[in-house]
Design a protein around this nucleic acid. Structure first.
Lengths: 146, 146
DNA sequence: GCTTGACCTCAAGTCGACTTTAAGTTGTAC
DNA sequence: GTACAACTTAAAGTCGACTTGAGGTCAAGC
């Protein structure tokens, strides 16, 4: 497969594939002339990378876990700790979602007067809801999801 | 209150407060000499901003919603749509969390052989799990949360 | 045999939310 | 009255994950 084929099949832009190769996340089997040639299993590897990204791993962490070769040891402890992290994030987001939903129907004259809203506010202010759960949704362009 | 006091009480660095003022997110009542003077309700406003950030609003969106003055109209429709967005994100993250947790205990020789894992992989690859749910956790330094 | 288009490289640019730095001003304690 | 810590500004830098752009190469079709 050449890079265009991989891009088409995986949905990952060619520029990103080159970038990933440079980072050591993927590798081509060789070249035909100048052009990279990829094996079929590149698609699995890209899926793995996508999964890691969705789970909140950085590209560097993913390089660590996947190693430069084959399909090697994914550290189980790390997996668990990421899952725990996700749990926290999910709880925070759930609280916020409920608060938002309530605020949307709340009849208090101003949100500031609503006890539920103020409680949520307190959470946000105190950092219980780490402002790091922020990126959680970040709708950019390219919304493949919706 | 001077900027240092606000920083101490809110946990928001002075540099960020200046940045927020520049963006129109907050405002000072005036100056004593060069120095900004803030009212007490700045703390509520900062909490509101923190909440918005955790809910995934961008600073620009927050400016929109809070207006430059007082505590005005928070668009209820927008709130609902953000809540819906959060729902999707939560679902995605939950699926990933479960997959991660399973992978951590899965006895398949390689994760690639595990059907559950491959199913998760399929989700990630197909973009069902938008790679935009990625930022969801992004542990930076300053982890106030843990 | 020459144009064309898909690939290539390397460097620089982008985006959002801040932080850092350099250089300047000032209220206050001595 | 002067030193100094704490404030001020404007501009530039940071971070991660890519994207874009300029300029180059090459296989294939006419």
């Amino acid at each position: 497969m050449d890079i265009a084929e991989v891009a088409k099949r995986s949905g990952v832009p060619a520029s990103t594939l080159r970038f990933y190769e440079e980072k050591g996340l993927i590798s081509s089997v060789g070249r035909q002339g100048l052009r990279r040639v990829f094996r079929d299993n590149i698609l699995d590897r890209l899926a793995l990378i996508a999964l890691g990204r969705s789970a909140g791993f950085s590209l560097d962490e993913i390089v660590q876990m996947l190693g430069s070769k084959g399909r090697p040891n994914i550290d189980r402890e790390l997996l668990v700790s990421k899952a725990d992290e996700l749990d926290k994030t999910i709880k925070n987001l759930t609280a916020i979602r409920d608060g938002l939903r309530h605020a949307a129907v709340c009849s208090a004259p101003s949100h500031m007067e609503c006890p539920k809203f103020r409680r949520l506010l307190g959470l946000a202010a105190s950092g219980v809801i780490s402002s790091d759960s922020k990126g959680a949704l970040s709708q950019k362009r390219r919304g493949t999801s919706a």
